[in-house]
Design a protein around this nucleic acid. Structure first.
Length: 489
RNA sequence: GGCGCGUUCGUCUAGAGGCCUAGGACACCGCCCUUUCAAGGCGGAGAUCGCGGGUUCGAAUCCCGCACGCGCUACCA
């Protein structure tokens, strides 16, 4: 591959950046990086009715979150701008005019009612649905006259003979019968181009060499190829990426739930984890690599290692990866993350800024038992003045309901911890005191420690107990133990 | 309905005629470690490579047919 590779990510501003779109962008970015090429971001807003305010910002934010950078786009400019299609209308009109001059496009006055009735009839008769070419034969002069008073669209005159085939970089040769093609709309009643025309014009203008997009576009290949041919332009290379699907094997959609890229960020997924996860949805490096960074990916990516079959978006795997990356974070950045998510999620009555000494003491205790950052607050809110509320049953849940043992454990803990001089309070003394309980109760620590967990944090599981008690402070720890004791007979 | 694409452990994948009695990872199970929960270490179970025909000394890998799934079938992208 030469250094002149150019590809583009071309989302529609119809809402939030879709996770499937993110994966497409990631592959495009990796491809371009691996080949010393350029990535172009282009906004395809030719459907005014679907435009959603803020979409462009959301898309850009989502791409940046993953570390994807582009060389040309609406925000960074470039030599082929503008990069928003609604600002390039004149270009589409020019090409449409050229197509008409070449008799490859004609006005169509058919109403949408007639068109949908036509489709219904065709389907009923087992025919391939498509425009029947009713307006094909209207003489151009006559069509222009009618256009003065009647709404019309512009259709592309497809060549219905022979076949169209092209080489897909991922699937190999693909062939379509031209007789099954129909004359599709290229300029809508409102004067805007459809996707097919706008894409063609822009890809040509922007000197795109590789069109990398999702498989759902495969079937429109013939349309695009004929359009290129009609204009006498040479087409780019095509690569259709496998779809991301849900557990039922269907294309990911809102039905699936979390389809917005940034929602994953907001639920505590690390960009490194998401990048790693998405990378292996359809691509692999070799027979054993399961972890990869953006830097490694942009060195190693090749389209010929993309598989053609769809991939299930398995959140369990994302979770595993996220846990992996959380654990691999150095103390500094991890602590920063904890502070951030704590102040985001802790109840509002906990005063901010948070006690930074406490936060950094807490951080290492959390690191190994968290999958998503939004679990940080849940696991540590008991440390921030939030006395646990729990039913008595929970105290004895893991000791076979033995409330006598629970009471004894609490009494002994109260006394052992109470014996520690306030000045001696610390992890060492607390641990010694609790461990000392083993002799007094003549039981292994693991046999009764759950009672203490519940008393201190309100659950039989959580971050390490000794640290928690030490961090909580002597007074507060004793109060909680007493509180637990008072629930028992 | 038509056309297109796809089909290897539950999942993501490795595999481009003999290296495959099919490898890795997640999930699952067990053991170890252990202050709970995790994490970590070790081990296990799990795929007659969608099915049926060929070609070949030999096929997950090549060819043909079938089945199933998905995608497309808009004045949406």
């Amino acid at each position: 591959m030469t250094g002149s590779v150019r590809t583009r990510f071309a989302p529609s501003p119809t809402g939030e950046l879709h996770i499937g779109g993110l994966r497409t962008a990631l592959f495009q970015w990796a491809f371009v990086q691996a080949n010393g090429g350029k990535l172009i971001l282009r906004i395809e807003d030719t459907d005014q009715s679907r435009y959603v305010e803020g979409s462009i910002e959301n898309i850009i934010e989502g791409l940046r979150w993953l570390g994807i950078e582009w060389d040309e786009g609406p925000d960074v400019g470039g030599p082929h701008g503008p990069y928003i299609q609604s600002e390039r209308l004149a270009k589409y009109q020019t090409v449409a005019g050229e197509l008409r001059a070449r008799d490859r496009a004609y006005r169509c006055f058919c109403s949408s009612e007639r068109l949908s009735q036509l489709r219904k009839d065709q389907q009923k008769d087992g025919l391939s649905p498509g425009y029947d070419g009713r307006c094909r034969a209207i003489p151009p002069i006559q069509a222009e006259e009618r256009a003065l008073t009647e709404p019309s669209v512009l259709r592309f005159r497809m060549d219905r003979t022979g076949v169209t085939n092209f080489h897909d970089l991922i699937r190999g040769d693909v062939t379509f019968q031209n007789s099954l093609q129909d004359d599709f709309v290229i300029i809508k009643t409102d004067g805007f181009p459809t996707y097919h025309l706008a894409m063609l014009v822009d890809d040509h203008d922007m000197e795109i060499t590789h069109v990398i997009r999702a498989e759902e576009w495969l079937a429109s290949g013939p349309k695009h190829l004929q359009l290129y041919d009609a204009m006498g332009w040479s087409p780019p290379h095509f690569a259709h990426l496998p779809l991301l699907v849900d557990a039922q094997g269907r294309k990911l959609s809102k039905r699936f739930g979390d389809v917005s890229a940034l929602d994953y960020r907001d639920r505590g997924y690390l960009p490194e984890a998401m990048l790693n996860f998405l990378t292996f949805l359809g691509w692999s490096l070799d027979d054993k690599t399961t972890h990869i960074t953006g830097d490694e990916l942009k060195q190693a990516f090749t389209l010929d290692r993309v598989v053609p079959n769809p991939a299930f978006f398995d959140v369990e795997r994302l979770d595993a990866l996220n846990g992996h990356y959380i654990r691999s974070l150095n103390p500094e950045p991890w602590s920063k993350n904890v502070a951030e998510w704590l102040s985001r999620d802790l109840p509002t009555d906990v005063p901010r800024p948070l006690d930074s000494a406490l936060v950094s003491a807490l951080a290492p205790l959390l690191q190994e038992r968290i999958t998503r950052l939004d679990e940080v607050a849940t696991l540590s809110r008991f440390m921030f003045g939030d006395r646990p509320d729990y039913p008595m049953d929970l105290l004895v849940e893991r000791i076979d309901g033995d409330s006598e043992l629970a009471a004894l454990t609490l009494d002994e803990a109260l006394s052992a911890l109470g014996d520690i001089e306030p000045l001696d309070w610390g992890l060492g003394s607390v641990e010694a005191a609790i461990r000392g309980l083993q002799d007094r109760l003549d039981l292994k620590l693991r046999k009764f420690v759950s009672v203490l967990y519940v008393a201190i944090m309100g659950a039989p599981r959580g971050i390490p107990l000794f640290d928690s008690i030490a961090l909580l402070g002597r007074e507060e720890a004793l109060i909680r133990l007493q509180g637990a004791r008072s629930k028992l007979p």
